[in-house]
C-alpha cells in the first residue's frame, strides 16, 4: 500500500535476468486469474452468492478449498468470481491514472509557459495530497461504488505518474537526438511525434503493469474500509471487509483473499520489472 508513487519514479532496478522462475510463476498466476475473470464457472464449483445455511463457517477442506463464510458460501468460489471485478477495477484505475498522467505530464512539459507553470503547480498540489486522502475526498463526494473506486484510485495515483511523464518528456526534449533534429530543421510536431513521445512513453508500458498490481491493492483497501464495493460482492477487498467480523472464529475468511491480493501484487510487480528491464535494454542497443 505504501509503495506506490516512488516505485514508479525511482523504480529500483534489481538484476532480474538470472531468475526467470519468478517471472514464469507470475505469468502462471496471472493466466490462472485471467481464466477466473473470463470464465469463473470453469474454476469455481459454486456460485458466488449461493447461500447454504447448512454449511456455515466451515474450515478449509476438500469440499470447500478456502472454507465457507457465515452464510455457507464457498470462499474459493467467491474469490474466483470476484476476480473479474477486482482485476477490472485495478486495470481501470491504472488506465485512468496513466491517461491523466500523460495529459498532465505532457501539458506541464510541452505547453507554453503560463499554462505549463499552472499545470505544474496543480500537479504539485495534487501530489501534496496523500493518494488515500484524494480517494477519500472523491468517495465522500460521489458515494462508494466500483466506478468511484476506479476514479478515486486513478486520480489518487495520477500525480506521481504525471511528474514522471513530465520528467521523461523533458529529458527526451533535451537529449542529443532532439537537438540534432531541431538543427536539421524538422518541424515541432514531427519531433514530438517521432522522437519525444516514443522515448518518453515507452517506459509507461512497464509502469502500467506495475500500477495494475498497486491499484488492486489500493482499491481493495478502500473496500476494506467500507468505502468501495460492499459485501456480499465477492470483490477481494469486500471479502476481507466481510471476514473481519469472524476473524477469531474463521481466520480463513481473511487469510485467503489477502494472500491472493498479495500474490497478484507480487506477480504484477515482477512482470513490470522484467518489462522495464527489457525495454531499457532495447533502448540502449
Amino acid at each position: 500500500m505504501t509503495a506506490l508513487r516512488p516505485s514508479v519514479i525511482d523504480a529500483p532496478r534489481v538484476a532480474l535476468t538470472k531468475r526467470p522462475w519468478s517471472l514464469y510463476l507470475s505469468i502462471g498466476l496471472l493466466a490462472f486469474l485471467a481464466v477466473a475473470a473470463v470464465a469463473p464457472n470453469l474454476l469455481a464449483p459454486y456460485g458466488p452468492t449461493a447461500i447454504d445455511y447448512d454449511s456455515a463457517l466451515q474450515p478449509p477442506s476438500f469440499l470447500h478449498l478456502f472454507g465457507t463464510d457465515e452464510s455457507g458460501r464457498d470462499l474459493y468460489s467467491r474469490v474466483i468470481h470476484g476476480t473479474s471485478q477486482s482485476l477490472l477495477i485495478g486495470i481501470g484505475a491504472a488506465f485512468v491514472s496513466l491517461v491523466l498522467a500523460v495529459i498532465l505530464g505532457a501539458l506541464a512539459a510541452l505547453s507554453v509557459k503560463p499554462v505549463a507553470i499552472l499545470v505544474d503547480r496543480s500537479v504539485e498540489i495534487l501530489f501534496a495530497f496523500p493518494a488515500l486522502l484524494l480517494a477519500l475526498l472523491l468517495i465522500a463526494i460521489t458515494g462508494p461504488s466500483a466506478w468511484t473506486q476506479v476514479f478515486a484510485v486513478g486520480l489518487g495515483t495520477a500525480p506521481g505518474y504525471a511528474r514522471m511523464v513530465r520528467g521523461q518528456i523533458l529529458a527526451a526534449k533535451n537529449s542529443g537526438y532532439v537537438e540534432a533534429a531541431t538543427a536539421l530543421g524538422h518541424s515541432r510536431g514531427r519531433i514530438l511525434h517521432e522522437h519525444i513521445l516514443p522515448n518518453a512513453l515507452r517506459p509507461l508500458v512497464a509502469v502500467f503493469a506495475l500500477s495494475i498490481g498497486q491499484s488492486i491493492v489500493w482499491a481493495s483497501g478502500l473496500s476494506f474500509l467500507g468505502l468501495g464495493v460492499a459485501p456480499p460482492s465477492p470483490e477481494w477487498g469486500a471479502l476481507l471487509d466481510a471476514g473481519r467480523a469472524y476473524v477469531t472464529q474463521a481466520s480463513w475468511l481473511l487469510l485467503f483473499p489477502g494472500l491472493v491480493i498479495v500474490a497478484l501484487a507480487l506477480s504484477a510487480t515482477s512482470i513490470g520489472r522484467h518489462l522495464q528491464f527489457y525495454l531499457e535494454k532495447g533502448r540502449r542497443t
Binding site: T49, I51, Y53, E70, S71, P231, P232, A242, A245
Partner: peptide
C-alpha cells in the same frame, strides 16, 4: 454486520 448478512439472505 449480522444484520447485513441477514439482508443478504433476504435477497437470495
Amino acid at each position: 454486520a449480522d444484520g447485513a448478512a441477514i439482508l443478504q439472505g433476504v435477497k437470495e
